[in-house]
Amino acid sequence: MALFSNTISLLERSLDYSSLKQQVISQNIANADTPNYKAKDVNFKSVLNSEMEKTLPTYMTNSKHIPFQTSSESFTITKKNVQYNNNGNSVDIDQEMSDLADNQIYYNALIERLNGKFQTLQTVIKGGSQ
């Protein structure tokens, strides 16, 4: 039985994405002064495709249909079109801090929504009385 029409599992996977994004941003910030370090980012498209394949199985009903291909690329990528510092490092600390704040807001919104789902479940279990 899926509670809340799979909303909780979807929120869980979104939290996994946010956690991965947090780890990558933290690595970039930690290596801001490391010579020749190339800043990384999370490839949202490959994360989305991976999750969609888990939840939406694809079936070919006709041999003329274009087959769906699974992506073997990793979720983290090296950022492109960035300027390098004198030491070959491509971390822009201001951009990383901005990304960190955006990710924190996203994470907090997911947690609030998840808490709301659990509060609704708790209300239903108690029979609506508090």
Rank of each mutant, 00 (worst) to 15 (best):
V91P: 00
S46C: 00
N86I: 12
G128S: 05
N86R: 12
G128L: 07
N36R: 10
T7Q: 07
A109M: 11
G127M: 01
N36K: 15
K64T: 09
D92E: 12
S5P: 02
S19A: 15
F118D: 06
S5V: 12
M97W: 08
S129P: 00
K126F: 01
G116V: 07
V47K: 05
A101Y: 15
N28W: 13
S19D: 13
S19W: 12
E53T: 12
G127K: 03
L56T: 09
N87S: 03
M60F: 05
S129M: 01
S9A: 08
G127P: 02
K79I: 02
I66N: 01
T123H: 09
I125H: 01
K80Q: 12
N31Q: 08
P35E: 03
S74A: 03
T7F: 08
S63F: 09
H65Y: 00
I111N: 11
F75S: 00
N103K: 11
D94Y: 07
N89R: 03
S9T: 10
N85S: 15
S14H: 10
T78E: 06
Q83D: 08
Y107T: 13
L10T: 07
E96H: 06
N43Q: 04
L3D: 06
D94N: 14
G127A: 03
F4I: 04
M60S: 08
S46P: 07
Q104T: 15
E51A: 11
V47I: 13
V82M: 15
A109S: 13
A2I: 15
Q119T: 03
L48S: 06
L11R: 08
S14P: 05
D99P: 10
I29R: 11
S71R: 06
P35T: 09
V24G: 01
N36H: 11
N31M: 09
Q23H: 11
G128M: 07
E53N: 14
V24P: 11
S26A: 15
V47A: 09
V42Q: 07
N81M: 05
L20W: 00
N6T: 11
L3P: 06
E12Y: 14
S98D: 05
K117M: 12
T7D: 08
E96I: 11
T58K: 11
N108K: 13
V82D: 08
S98P: 06
Y17M: 15
K79L: 12
Y107L: 04
Q130W: 04
I77H: 06
I125Y: 05
L11K: 04
S72C: 00
Q119R: 12
S129L: 04
S74H: 04
G127D: 01
S5T: 04
G127Q: 05
E51L: 08
D92L: 12
L15T: 02
Q22E: 12
